[in-house]
Amino acid sequence: MEDAKIVQLYFDRDEAALNETQSKYGKYLLKIANNILYNNEDSEECVNDTYLSAWNAMPPHRPDVLSLFLGKLTRGHAIDVYRKNHAGKRIPSEFTTSIDELEECIPGASDVEDNLEAKRLGEVISGFLREQSDEARNLFVGRYFYADSLKDVAAYYGMSEAKAKMILFRTRQKLKDFLDTEGFTV
């Protein structure tokens, strides 16, 4: 079923919307959640929360791209579950590895950093990514948004993992410099 029709089912408050969403995007969303949580049970629960959130959000929200809208919801839920269930513990998921890598992007200590809204930071990073090559941008989003493994992101372009790793490293360094120049550091 086309996305527009699925969205319309939500607007019509037709519960078939949930079945259609699960049928079309269930695996996609489960993959996103599992990359972060590394646990099937938690991931399925997370995806179910996504359906509920989508049901509550539509209407009034009418997403331009349903898959991205659902993906973002799933990612948000998965990160919440990750924090709640694994606070202080370290689990061997791609998400754990990927956010460890993101540590390199943290600018120097700043008093204003806590005031920075995640949304604003997201916009800034979007601006930064637009300046990067297609390759660097997609590897970055694949690795740090979708928490895909290094092997998976390398497969986007059929490159070696070593090359993908090097591109990601350079992009992180650039992002750090970019955030510095944007004033997110002392």
Binding site: K72, I99, L102, L121, G122, Y144
Partner: peptide
């Protein structure tokens, strides 16, 4: 780092 990761949820749709 988690804040940066959280911020990525707000990346522009076209990029994702």
């Amino acid at each position: 780092k988690e804040k940066i990761s959280e911020a990525l949820s707000y990346l522009d749709d076209d990029i994702i």
